[in-house]
Structure formats: structure tokens, C-alpha cells
């Protein structure tokens, strides 16, 4: 009973969220000063007025906004996400192609920041007040306040331009045929963008883990375990990690939204052909179908991240899991 209610509630929240996201995105993109037609044909195009009118007519740009939105929503519900103006391909295809690039990037950055941040947080908490702790804290706070694109540019100018260790952009060597691109090429191109994205995600999880572990190390059960002969390493390994792992995982899943936000900027800096740079393109060319498609897609993505965090809590925390079984 409560489970089916939970699922129904979740689905309802998801649907209202998607409706709100699509309406809001539509209002924003249609009220932006960018003219999709000009963006499409260029400012000094020699296209005749008749041809322009025809395209405007075909795209339905002059229709009243409500009519445009309901037309889009109706088709969307039927599974037709429309055609991207900027890429001249169905929106679904663009998202699928681009996301396959981004998902690798996000996964690497997310895992990297999660694991490293968790370990750094534990280390800082155990050495609370030491020079290491202070250094980690300052590093995290600096990163937390640094904008993604700025960090991306710094990374780019140091490792790609000055040192020349990594390519300055794209997902594969320029001019190489798609079938010739090797896995190493791909990895080599992934390093800098995922480093940028990962480093930015690290500070949150580090600071969170540190704070939480310090709190836990102050609690009564740690005191009792100590009174029973456990040393610091045992306290951290047996009780500390057990008690911070779950909240830390939750924070990391909840960070999906920032990950998606970060990717839009990081991909633009590194000209990485992922969903983030597709979003930028869509925004700059007034590409309504693609923009709405990505907006809805990203909302689902972020929602799923939070949902996973909630479900994990229920599955892993005995207080929730067995409490439910009891009651």
C-alpha cells in the first residue's frame, strides 16, 4: 500500500516537474531576442523574402506561442520530439549521439570526484586541525568558489597550450576518419574535460565528508568504542566510514544537477561534442525543439539522480529498511 503510494507520488512529482520545466524553458527561449531564422541562414544571406516567409511558415515561428507550445507538447507525448534546427537532425538522434559522449565524461568525473573527495574528506577529518586539513579545506573552498569555465580555461592553457600534454579540444583528433579513431584517442581527449569537471565536483563531497566525520567522531558511540579499546584507525574504519558512507553517497547522487550544469560549460571550453555543448548551440540559435528536448531530458536525469539517492537510503539504512519491516 505505502509502496504503491510512494511510486504514484514520485511519478506525479516527476510529471509536474517535467511540465513546469518545459513551459518555463519554452517561455524563456521564445522571449529571447535571438531570431531562429537569422541564426539559421546567417545575417548576410541573400535568401529572398518569399523563401524566408516560407521557412517561417514551415517552422510555425509566427504562430501564437500557446499554439506552438501545445503543438510541440502534443507531438512530444506521441514520441515525436521534433527536428533540431541547428543540427538538421531529429532531436532524439542529436540527444542520443551527444549524450553518449557526455555520459562517459560525466561518469568519469563523477566517480573520480566521489572517490577522491570521500577519501580526502576522511583524511582531513582524521587529521583535523593539522596543516593537511587546512590545506585541503582552503583548496576546496577555492574550488567551490571558482567558476567552471574559468577552471576549464586554466586547465586548458596549462596542460594543453603550455605543456602540450593533451589536446586542446574535441573528442577525437581533428581530420581523423571516424573509423580510424582509437580508444586511446578517445581517452586522451577525455582527460582534461573530465579533470575539470571532476575537480569542481570534489570540493563539495570533501567538505561534506569531513564535516560529517568530525561530527560522528564526537558522538557517544565513538567514545564508547574507544573506551572498549579501539584505536583511531579502528574507530574510523569500523564506525566512522559506516556512518558517513550513506549520507556521502546521497550527496554525490544529489550532485547530478551540478554535474549537468558543469558539463554545459566544461564542454564549451573544450569544444567537446557532448550534450552540454549541444545545449549551448541550441540556446544560441533559438533551436526550440532541441532546447526543450534537452531540458526535459536533463530534468529526468537529475530527478533520477535524486530518486536513486532516496531509494539507496531506504535499501541501505537499517533504520529505514527494518523500521518499515517492523511497522
Amino acid at each position: 500500500m505505502s509502496r504503491s503510494r510512494y511510486i504514484a507520488g514520485t511519478v506525479f512529482r516527476m510529471l509536474t516537474l517535467l511540465a513546469a520545466v518545459s513551459v518555463l524553458s519554452f517561455v524563456l527561449v521564445t522571449s529571447s531576442p535571438i531570431d531562429p531564422l537569422t541564426a539559421y541562414i546567417g545575417t548576410n544571406s541573400t535568401l529572398s523574402q518569399e523563401a524566408r516567409d516560407e521557412i517561417t511558415e514551415h517552422w510555425g515561428l509566427d504562430d501564437p506561442p500557446v499554439e506552438r507550445f501545445t503543438a510541440w507538447a502534443g507531438n512530444f507525448l506521441k514520441g515525436d520530439w521534433g527536428t533540431s534546427i541547428a543540427f538538421k537532425k531529429p532531436v532524439k538522434t542529436v540527444i542520443k549521439e551527444r549524450f553518449s559522449y557526455s555520459v562517459v565524461l560525466m561518469l568519469i568525473a563523477w566517480t573520480f570526484s566521489g572517490v577522491l573527495g570521500f577519501l580526502a574528506g576522511i583524511f582531513a577529518a582524521v587529521r583535523k586541525g593539522s596543516l593537511w586539513d587546512k590545506a585541503i579545506k582552503v583548496f576546496c573552498l577555492a574550488l567551490q568558489s571558482a567558476p567552471t569555465f574559468w577552471v576549464g580555461l586554466l586547465v586548458l592553457s596549462l596542460f594543453a597550450v603550455q605543456l602540450g600534454w593533451f589536446p586542446i579540444g574535441l573528442a577525437a583528433p581533428m581530420g581523423k576518419l571516424a573509423q580510424d579513431v582509437t580508444l586511446e584517442d578517445r581517452i586522451w581527449h577525455l582527460v582534461l574535460p573530465s579533470l575539470t569537471l571532476g575537480v569542481l565536483g570534489i570540493s563539495k563531497i570533501t567538505l561534506y565528508t569531513r564535516q560529517k566525520l568530525i561530527e560522528i567522531m564526537d558522538s557517544g558511540f565513538i567514545l564508547f568504542a574507544k573506551a572498549r579499546g579501539e584505536d583511531t584507525a579502528q574507530l574510523v574504519l569500523r564506525h566512522g566510514i559506516r556512518n558517513i558512507a550513506l549520507p556521502a553517497v546521497t550527496v554525490q547522487f544529489a550532485a547530478f544537477s551540478e554535474l549537468f550544469g558543469g558539463i554545459a560549460l566544461a564542454e564549451s571550453v573544450f569544444s567537446y561534442p557532448g550534450i552540454g555543448s549541444a545545449l549551448t548551440t541550441a540556446g544560441l540559435s533559438g533551436d526550440v525543439p532541441l532546447l526543450l528536448g534537452i531540458a526535459v531530458f536533463s530534468a529526468v536525469f537529475v530527478f533520477t539522480g535524486n530518486l536513486i539517492a532516496n531509494i539507496l537510503y531506504g535499501l541501505l539504512d537499517p533504520r529505514i529498511k527494518e523500521g518499515r519491516a517492523d511497522g
Binding site: S219, F221, L223, F224, R228, G229, R238, N243
Partner: peptide, 20 residues
């Protein structure tokens, strides 16, 4: 010696690890 010859008995449940 603590935990061996000298044992401590705390006040309450709050002194047990909630997740173990």
C-alpha cells in the same frame, strides 16, 4: 587496559553504533 581489564558501561543506547 580499557576494554580488557577495565570495562566502561555507558548511560544509554546512544553509545551504540546505530548502523552496526
Amino acid at each position: 587496559l580499557r576494554g580488557k581489564e577495565i570495562a566502561f558501561i555507558p548511560q544509554s543506547l546512544a553509545y551504540l553504533d546505530p548502523l552496526m
